[in-house]
Design a protein around this nucleic acid. Sequence first.
DNA 1: GTGAAAGCGCTAACAA
DNA 2: TTGTTAGCGCTTTCAC
Lengths: 344, 344
Amino acid sequence: MKKKTNKPTLRTVAEACGVRPATVSRVLNKVDNNFSVKPETRDLILKTALDMAYIPNTAARSLRRRRFDLVLIFGYDLPNFLPAATYGDMLGALVQRLNADGYQVNMTFPPPAGRKTAPLSCDGAVFIDTGDSELIDDFRRHAMPMLILNDRIEDCSWVAVDDTDGMRRLLAQLAAAGHRRIAYRCANKIHRLQSHQSISDRYQTYQEWARTHEMKMVTDYDQSMSNHEFIDAVQETGCTAVATYDEKLAMSFYQSCLERNLGIPEDLSLVAFDKPVNYDLMPKITAMWQPAEQMGEAAAEILLRQIKGRSSGPEQMVMKLNLHEGASIAPPPLPDGARLMEMA
Amino acid sequence: MKKKTNKPTLRTVAEACGVRPATVSRVLNKVDNNFSVKPETRDLILKTALDMAYIPNTAARSLRRRRFDLVLIFGYDLPNFLPAATYGDMLGALVQRLNADGYQVNMTFPPPAGRKTAPLSCDGAVFIDTGDSELIDDFRRHAMPMLILNDRIEDCSWVAVDDTDGMRRLLAQLAAAGHRRIAYRCANKIHRLQSHQSISDRYQTYQEWARTHEMKMVTDYDQSMSNHEFIDAVQETGCTAVATYDEKLAMSFYQSCLERNLGIPEDLSLVAFDKPVNYDLMPKITAMWQPAEQMGEAAAEILLRQIKGRSSGPEQMVMKLNLHEGASIAPPPLPDGARLMEMA
DNA sequence: GTGAAAGCGCTAACAA
DNA sequence: TTGTTAGCGCTTTCAC
């Protein structure tokens, strides 16, 4: 066991090569504005650095360069939310784009209480499903590049989706299949601690649709209901289709329908938002999916512009949801009388 | 728009207070070994720092302190694997423990090619599902504290599970219910690019079981088979139970069984490894779950010992899997003849 | 083609 | 109770 692991520094390497640290730095960073290195010293330095397993000290480098080449992702709940499937894709695209421009990407978990040094340890930040407004404020005060992904915050850059349009198209899809009475299951009061734009957007669109189509609303927006209570309400009011706030609610509702021998879509049509995890193992539900990759990429582009100062003020972007056709919509079942007439 | 965002530094704050940077540093870092600050200057400094929104520069601090207060998690594929559910819990516990000791935790995504500065930008690292042995080598060469989570690498610290024991108990569970012929679906050749200890552990245990119980092996370990081909094999050989390598395979197999009107567990018993995502929405399968929280915590403890130099050499830890009882085991269905006898 | 020197912002040992 | 000083390891301008 060695007494002390003296990590090689620029100076160590330089001494081993009989040159000065500055030269080593130039060689390793491939400073090529005017070919200022003799090939043999260059090779010697390269070889020595490799042999000694030299790794530049990030702190020193960042301090000097005044830049970190690092983007932080804040999404404290991501371990829970990543299973929303769509975030994996979104972040994948985001990271790839940032990497292409030389930025390392780190996802940070909640920092120890009292430590809030983040704004001065990266070049920019992406907030996703993070309600940490204090941190966002800090970034803003320090004029640090940042972007909100999948939500909207005033005076910030963000990339979000058009839930109003999404809900409208979802309802239109059901209407096109012949549905006139549609219920909306959202369970927001119960499931969501902090409110998200999508909650009100989707609900209000449902409300608007009900008004313009003279349709009686059947929803659990204002009250907490179990799946079975909701199914009761659906049946009592003669709804022939149900829209749910997200895929989790949809799957859970689907299970409850099975338990009651309610076939989907034969007896009840079902639509939702979001792509479920393990999509191929799940019942195929027609749903509005986020354009995950595009969102990630757009976010990266905007953030990069902010970082490189090529942007004046916040940029905001709304994207359309994609209708993903499953097998959960059918024409409404005919009422018993009508069925008899049809058979005759 | 301000001309230039002059971020406040220690010096800025010090000048505003009429003291020297060192004093500010002492106050903000609560150096309290001997109450060396006059209350009024202390308050002034605190207030000024807050007003100016002073945030220490991480790079400068780390450079000087020779420490980052940061642990990096490497798991490049985590966005894909987190949906394995168990990792969310594992990381949650790990992070919490490290936070408690004042360490920030970042999960890093693949760094831009050619940049391998990680070993000198953190105090320690956790590798999870990462086959980046080059990076691991770098950490080792620099004698940086690190730990492999959920896998084993020679001469490293790691926390892993006892898959041999797990498989044995799973098979024993089936045997206790009366099963004598058990098939093993692993599909490893197809699904796993890089090999994991669990693959051979589980397979070899199955093999051993077959030998000692004089049971004919029915498995796809050496050949690629579709679910339906596998079901064919199961039926031809009269197997009454199937064990699968993981929950994904189990779920997928389950679906295929439904398609063939094979009831689980009435017609076929099924066991697996791992906890599925959205467990409450999934069919309840008896499976071996990782003790996720304990693993995360143990990993944190070991890593902390390494970081604080309280450890001599690598520490390795094997944990038992937990049997999670679902509803996928039943006694084997009686052969037709036997069933008649029973009824008589 | 390479060296000298300054300094990024912070902390810790020492001095007063 | 506070100031002075040195320097962490690196990059970059300027000089030769």
